[in-house]
């Protein structure tokens, strides 16, 4: 986890990076595969009182208590339904483990440097600040998400702000 930056640099030098592709509603998104710990089903989530609606609660991941967020609710991307296909991508960010609910995980893609384009100023569901770029795959377009920035952001309310810790 801590050496991801080194790996990223190495990957950037070779020009190829691997991404996990998943979908939220009709859009296809992708995150750096190095941040992904595992993929699991959605079950046994304990609700947390007085938390924002997109925080579904916490789940037990082999003894580790992991918060589960639903990006579909947070960014109003699709109706949040939970069925056999609903999956949780468990990611490792900033020394934390977080699960995020997505509609479907499709595949793992390797993108070269030329295939990654800067994100234009248009609505793709997620705020622009959390988008690294767009992946061009012929007729398919992937929105590359900076998952670390997104999940540690204040609006996700997953991390205590420093001053709250003081009290």
């Amino acid at each position: 986890m801590t050496n991801t930056s080194a790996q990223e640099i190495a990957a950037a030098e070779s020009g190829n990076r691997e991404f996990l592709v998943f979908s939220l509603g009709d859009e296809e998104y992708a995150i750096d595969i190095l941040k992904v710990q595992e993929i699991r089903g959605y079950d046994n989530v304990t609700r947390i009182a007085n938390a924002p609606d997109f925080i579904k609660g916490v789940a037990n991941l082999r003894g580790v208590i992991v918060p589960i967020v639903d990006l579909r609710i947070k960014f109003r991307l699709s109706s949040a339904e939970y069925d056999a296909q609903t999956v949780v991508i468990v990611v490792n960010i900033a020394e934390r483990v977080v699960g995020m609910v997505v509609d479907r995980v499709s595949d793992v893609m390797t993108l070269s440097g030329e295939q990654i384009k800067a994100a234009p100023e248009f609505g793709v569901g997620l705020p622009l600040a959390y988008i690294e770029g767009l992946g061009n795959l012929g007729e398919r377009m992937l929105v590359l998400v900076d998952i670390e920035k997104l999940l540690t952001s204040e609006e996700m309310a997953l991390v205590d702000k420093a001053e709250e810790n003081q009290q």
Partner: peptide
């Protein structure tokens, strides 16, 4: 006793969490 703050944050009214016999989390 499992700390909630390891991966999440402090939750008002809750001191920690634990895992019950059925594998689910209880606050």
């Amino acid at each position: 006793v499992k700390n909630l703050e390891t991966n999440y944050r402090r939750v008002p009214g809750v001191s920690a969490a634990t895992i019950l016999g059925d594998g689910s989390v209880a606050l």
